[in-house]
Design a binder for these strands. Sequence first.
DNA 1: TTTCATACCTAGATACTCTAGGTATAGAGC
DNA 2: GCTCTATACCTAGAGTATCTAGGTATGAAA
Lengths: 114, 114
Amino acid sequence: MYIVFMSETKLSSDLLRGHTDTMVLKLLNEGDKYGYEISKLITEKSRGAYQLNEATMYSCLKRLEREACIKSYWGDETNGGRRKYYSITRHGQDLYVQNKENWENAKTILSKLL
Amino acid sequence: MYIVFMSETKLSSDLLRGHTDTMVLKLLNEGDKYGYEISKLITEKSRGAYQLNEATMYSCLKRLEREACIKSYWGDETNGGRRKYYSITRHGQDLYVQNKENWENAKTILSKLL
DNA sequence: TTTCATACCTAGATACTCTAGGTATAGAGC
DNA sequence: GCTCTATACCTAGAGTATCTAGGTATGAAA
């Protein structure tokens, strides 16, 4: 795994507030993943511009599981600590699609207001 | 003043969290305005898709004034209640430009993560 | 055996927003 | 006069996502 840190500009996390759930759901929609992997993937995919805080991520995973958007199970492989995997539920997939739509709509409105 | 309420889709305010300051600064950058006027303008410009909560707006105005981004003065004209006008400061203008840049950057990152 | 990356977790603080109230004025209608 | 509505301001306290600042444990490398 290669992680490229370019980070021309660091993102203020206030601007991404509320999008954490959607980011996580998107990744899980592409396949089961464990927490640590999710945070690394987000750093990687944003090319280092955004690093998801661990506490924020675990808080997010707890919330999504409580709302039955994802389910968790313990994995066997260890590469250090034990891995807890998460898989998206049908409800989570629906939420992801809806969040994406809301985001597209929000972008349109914000272009008029900012 | 004509306000058109079309409101195809209502916006979840979570997605706009953190943008209130920038919206207000943008309007004040175009000229002094009073609070009630600001909230009506935002409803109008978003064609009814987003209505800025009054409490949120006053909280925002307090914050911006405390941070010396805007200044306030009482107006004479009354059309009901007394009007308290706000004007943007140099510091507020700088913040607006910076927030706009951050937003453009955030959009790019989010397109990779959502 | 020490260090580092992996991998998980939590309590409490912070900060923006919302709920749910409140006050006061001016004008229109009866 | 009286009521109703729109205008115009304000606040206390609750809610909630995020961050700070810790913590535990494993395995591999030095």
